[in-house]
Design a protein around this nucleic acid. Structure first.
Lengths: 94, 94
DNA sequence: CGCTACTGCTACGATTTTCGTAGCGCAAGG
DNA sequence: CCTTGCGCTACGAAAATCGTAGCAGTAGCG
């Protein structure tokens, strides 16, 4: 794949993840699925309009799906795996 | 360390990284340092007021420093290392 | 000195995003 | 019917972001 095109894709992903609550939502779903209201609770009572918008974006990106509550897809699970080392980083630096 | 406190720290980091352009800025600095204007160019001509605000936040968090242009600190370099697998993820899923 | 070219930004009004509260429509259970 | 929980929408207020313009400082050159 063309390096330039790949760079644009990464930029698009960062644009998606760079919206408020987006990382947090994925993170909060990393272990257990949750209903809309439950997920709201895990995310400090985020505004429902924003949560609905975020979930729509994540569903369209194939990161989250809605089956017996919201949960990560295979792709989403692999994405959040990437973030596991962040936990250690936070311990060391933050 | 208390797991609850750690969770809050992760949330705070995601709050920082969940601001628009934040991930992108770190990503664009991953290899070469850049001047303010150069960095603006790499980030699709982001608004200078926002770039200044972001850089201030990243400097305060100890992720970026200003020496001969803007560059990642040791902590910042380790953080972006965490993101290297994201590149592969994008190739597979995005 | 004066001119040029760069640096890192700040100012500010316009636009977009996010917030917070209220509550709608639907389905299931008693 | 009535309640309960579900996913979500509506909508005005507040906050974040944008885009353009340009300021102040430093260095080099003649």
């Amino acid at each position: 794949m063309d390096a330039r095109a790949h760079g644009r894709k990464v930029a698009r992903l960062f644009e998606l993840l760079g919206k408020r609550w987006q990382l947090r939502i994925i993170w909060e779903l990393r272990e257990d699925p949750a209903t809309f209201r439950e997920l709201r609770g895990r995310c400090d009572e985020i505004s429902p309009s924003v949560l609905a918008a975020r979930l729509a974006e994540l569903r369209e990106a194939g990161i989250v799906e809605h089956r017996d509550g919201y949960r990560l897809t295979k792709a989403g699970a692999e994405l959040i795996e990437v973030y596991q080392p962040v936990s250690a980083w936070v311990g060391r630096w933050f």
